[in-house]
Structures are given as C-alpha cells and as structure tokens.
Design a protein around this nucleic acid. Structure first.
Lengths: 345, 345
DNA sequence: ATGAAAGCGCTAACAT
DNA sequence: ATGTTAGCGCTTTCAT
C-alpha cells in the first residue's frame, strides 16, 4: 500500500514530526536530516494523504464549480479558465452540472460532495432573486452572472445591460434600423435574457428608434436550434429586418443559419451580432461579430476572490462584507456587421 | 461549526454508532430511534465529513478525469457525459487539463490531487506507445483513445481506422473520386491522425482509387484554423478535389470555410465529412456529415469500468486482466455529402 | 532541531 | 438493536 509518514520516518530513522516538517517545507531542519528524509521519501514513493491532511486542517485544496452544462461552449470555456486559474494557485476543481434545473441548483448548494470542497463558484441559471436566501451558506461562495442582484456572498458579473446596449449600438452604427432581438425569455424580468433585452431597448431608445414587439424572438433555451426557430418566426411575421442581436453566440449561429436559409444575405441585407465571443465566431461564414464578455477575467477574478475568502476564514479574520466585482466586456467586430463600404477583413 | 456525528448523537440521546447506522442506511435500527436521529440530523444540519469518511474507508467517492482542454468541444462534451454518468453512481469528478503537453500528461499520473481520488479516467493526446510503462500505476486507471495499444490498464476506444474508412467510403459512395484528407500529422504513426489516415487509405485502396500525397493536408493541431489553412494549401496545389475527409469536425469546419472562401460549392462541387458529431455540425451551412464516435457510450463505459475496478479493489478480489472495450460508431449523413439527385433534408 | 502524543470525524470490529 | 472503542494519516501543541 501507499507509504505513510510513519514508513518514511522509520526508514529515515527520525520521527514523523520531522518528516512532516520536511514535507511542508519547515525551515528549521538540519540539512543532513532533510537529505535523509528526502531520500526516504524518494525511496518509498511517499505522497501525502490528502484526506488525512484535509481532515486535520479542515481544508482540502479543492474548490467546487457548479454550472449548467459543460456541453454549452460558454461554460466549457469558463470551466477551462477556472481550472487553469485554480491550478496556478495549487488548487483543483470539482465540477457539478445542474442542467439549469432549479432543483438541481438548490441541491448543489447542499451537495455532500461539497463537503470536501473549500468553497464553491456557482453559476446559476434557473435561480432568481427570490432564491437569494438560499445563498446564505456557511462556506465561501462566489456567484457568477447577474441573475441575483444582492446576494449574501461575493459576486462576479459582467454588466449585461451595458454590453447588450453596446452590441445594439454597434448595429445601429452600422446602419441598421430594424433590429431583431433573438433569445428573449417570456415573462422573465431577471436573468441574462431580460437584462440583454433591456440593453437592447435602451440602445433603441437612445437612438430614437421604436421598440417593436414583432422584432423580438422568444426562445426556451439558448441553443442553436432555438435561435434558428426564433429567427424563422420573426421573419415569418413579414416585418422588415436589417439587423439581429443574438443574445448569445449560439443563438446567433442558429439565427445566421435561418437567415441564410431564407435567402437573406449577411451582412449586406441583414447584419448580426452575437454575445460570448466563442472561438467558433471566427469561423462561421460570415464570421460573427460579438461581445467578448471577458470570460478569462471572470474566471480569474472568481478564483481569486474565492481563495481569498478561504484564506480569510482560515486565518480567523472577521469576514469582510460581500463584494460585487464587475468585469469589462468588449465589442468584437467581424464580418457579420461589416458595412458594404468598409474594407474586408 | 459544522455538526458532527457526536453532536447528533448527543441531541438524539444515542451513541454515534447508531447515528452512523442511520446515516448509512443500516437496516436494523428501531423505527423510533431512526426517527429521533433523523430529527436530530435535521435540526443540527449535519452533513457527513467526507474527508474523515474517506480517510477511514480509503475511498473518497471522487474520480479524476484528465483531458487535454475543456475548450475543445469534443472534450467538453465528453467531460459533461462523464460527470453525468458519475453522478448516476453517486460519484463526483475532479478535472485536470493537460493542454496536450507531454510533461503535463506525465505529471497528471502522479498528481498529488489524485490522492483524494479513487481512480482516474485519462485521455492522453501527447503520450505514445513509448510511454506505456508510465501507465503502470497503483490506482485504478482507465485510458481513452487509441494512442496506446496495449496499456497495462483498462482501455476504452472507438476504432479509428474502421470509422475513418467508413467515412471515406461514404464519400466514395456519394460519388467522390478525388478525396482530400485534412488533419494528418507529419511523421506520426500512432494516434488518431495516423489511424484515421490509415482508414482513409484503406477505403481508397478497397475502391481501387490511388492514394495521392498532394491530397493530404498536414496540420499542427486540430483547431479550426488548422483545417482552414490545410484546405487552402491543398487547393493551392492546383489538384482536383471533389471530396474532403476532415479528421475531426473542427478541422472540417475550417476546411468548409476555406472551400467556400475559394468559391467551391459544397456539396455540389465538393462533398465533406467530419468526425466527432459535435452539436455544431447540425448548424453549419451546409450541415456537416460526420462520424458519431459514441461519446456518450465511451463516457458511460469508462465510468462503469473504473467504478468496477474500484469496487474490485475494495473487496480485495484478485485484479482481472486489463481489458479493451471498443465502442461503436455511426456515420451521420447531413447536407455536406448529399448527392445532387438525393432528396433534401 | 526534534520527539511524543492528542485528536480531526468517521467506520467497523467487537461487545452487549 | 445499540454501545464502546481502536485506529485511518496527518498536523500541531507541548516538551525537550
């Protein structure tokens, strides 16, 4: 079986305390002792038992990440960034998928598997402001996204309203006047869909353009198929459309496909912008303009905030008040919103 | 602080053993006792300490999953499937990214974070047959993919040669005679690229078509951009091309884009098939024919095999010999290989 | 600079 | 059916 401190100690002819000191890089160890211990560690192939250490010190070096679904590219890229950032700090990541189900989101907050986790980064999709009380947990928790506004925990967000407004203004600046919004959720007044719709409306208003319900495409989920269907629905209404704001890239890909299927030339007749800056946006035909939501920064910020909370708790300091961190976004212009008179890429 | 067995026991007026029995669903507990204990658990908010349990029983209920990168859609979807399957079995998943770096792949096999893991599912991308000895580890290990052929551990694979051959035969059946292969790795004779190239050659040979080096597009990685560049290179050679076998969907997306950029009509002038059945294949224009590699089945099989190895080890049974599990694939025909005379989708 | 020993919370063998 | 108790491997006082 795996070697323990005791095995190493015996082999090196010292006490387990000394081995422990060497393993943990304690300074005051005689050089000769250290060498002997290191040799014994090498020889036995000793690796510390994380469960035992974790039981003893109350931390495991593992953080949880709860998100809707890894098959959604946005979350896959986010998870990759979280894992990379965690690794920088010597921490590993345990992933839970909630499938965007409300019950699963409740469950994940009390999941027994989180017991061996030092804290959680949580990206809710079904929970809303009403559920804010559920976020009062007794472990460090960082939530992502703007579904909940004053959570009793740290919060890393990108400003959806401002970003959606900027995306819509980008279309307006490109000459669009009849801009469809694809991806709205019926009856929702919180969450990304509602916020991005609000940003869209603000941009229209600021430009003196009317808000026209017949230009809004409602969907269930933000999958490609939903984008395609919603786009077809809007076009079927027979209204004029010369621009499309897709509330995420995946919806926009579907909408782009629908436009092309119906013979609309993009960007000549209709311009379209998405949201997320998925890798894929670079490779569609035409390539998709989008909003870069600063995924990397969100991931880095979330990990750092979580780890500092964990450290704060370890050192027994008084808990600082929950903070909200807003990360920057960026409009990325690609072919799908290029003006006819603009130079090619 | 968090409640322990002792707290619950005290409150319920029983011993910790009884509480433990209730928690673990032991049958022989008096109904009234069980009720009292459950009430005490409810009241204290008791949750078992996984580290302690894990230390005691030697298992944590966590498995590791090591893969190149979550940002690659294939691996994101695979990881999602592994997590879902693991959850079915009450197990959680800790993910490590290797970035397809050889050193990182070596490291992951000895990573300290695996210490709290009961076993590992590993999808190597840089390791080769030469590294087979490194897979002799003292914990349950299941490897995925065909980079290594007779590993000293269980192995879940899809038959790349046969699948690539089937994909190429699909193009041939659709009338293609000048079929480019996009995604070869120079000098590689193991790994997916080499295997898929072999399947491609076998199909040509079986159909009596010549193998023409000028139709092979070499790449560094299997990203979209690589597919586009390789396709441009092949076209630049001025050779006739009426079919393209993309060694994965991502390459095929890039190649598709390149073909369209150069004014080739797909599928009328050139047909193209990819490999992986990413969700995205349904939404490109034209939609992409591909090979469904049975990701879900790979994930399920891998988790089940790993868990049964863990169970085998727990029960102290003699270890059965490592097995190879081959999962089935399926050709998915979409628009990109449709014959002119075939009915539309 | 190093050793002895307590105990983190749990499970399981043994006892009743 | 339930209680007692010995560790699992580690970190950490407290000695020396």
């Amino acid at each position: 079986m795996a070697a323990t401190l005791r095995d190493v100690a015996e082999l090196a002819g010292v006490s387990i305390k000394t081995v422990s000191n060497v393993v943990r890089g304690y300074k005051h160890v005689k050089e000769s002792t250290r060498t002997a211990v290191l040799a014994a560690i090498e020889q036995t192939g000793y690796q510390p038992n994380i469960s035992a250490r974790s039981l003893r010190i109350g931390r495991s070096g593992v953080i949880g990440l709860a998100l809707p679904e890894l098959a959604l590219p946005y979350f896959a890229e986010l998870a990759g960034a979280v894992i990379s950032e965690a690794k920088e700090h010597g921490v590993t990541v345990l992933i839970e998928q909630t499938g965007a189900e409300l019950d699963a989101e409740y469950d994940v907050l009390r999941s027994p598997s989180l017991q061996l986790t030092d804290g959680l980064i949580f990206s809710p999709l079904a929970m809303s402001q009403d559920d804010v009380a559920r976020l009062e947990v007794d472990y460090p928790l960082v939530i992502l996204g703007e579904r909940i506004f004053d959570p009793p925990c740290d919060h890393v967000v990108m400003d959806n309203v401002v970003a959606a407004r900027a995306a819509t203004e980008h279309l307006i600046a490109a000459g669009c006047r009849r801009i469809a919004a694809i991806g709205a959720h019926l009856g929702e007044d919180q969450g990304s869909a509602a916020l991005r719709l609000r940003g869209y409306r603000e941009a229209l208003e600021a430009a003196g353009l009317p808000y026209d319900e017949s230009l809004v495409g409602y969907v269930g989920l933000w999958h490609r198929l939903d984008g395609a269907q919603a786009m077809h629905e809007v076009l079927a209404r027979g209204v004029a459309v010369d621009g499309v704001f897709g509330m995420n890239d995946t919806l926009a890909f579907g909408a782009l496909r629908a436009l092309q299927d119906e013979g609309r030339r993009v960007p000549d007749e209709v311009k379209i912008i998405g949201f997320d800056d998925l890798d894929e946006t670079r490779y569609t035909a035409p390539s998709l303009s989008t909003v870069d939501p600063g995924r990397l920064q969100i991931a880095q910020q979330a990990v750092r905030v979580l780890l500092s909370r964990i450290e704060e708790r370890r050192s027994g300091g008084a808990a600082a008040a929950p903070r909200r961190y807003t990360t920057p976004f960026r409009i990325v212009e690609r072919e799908s919103t290029r003006r006819a008179d603009a130079p090619a890429a």
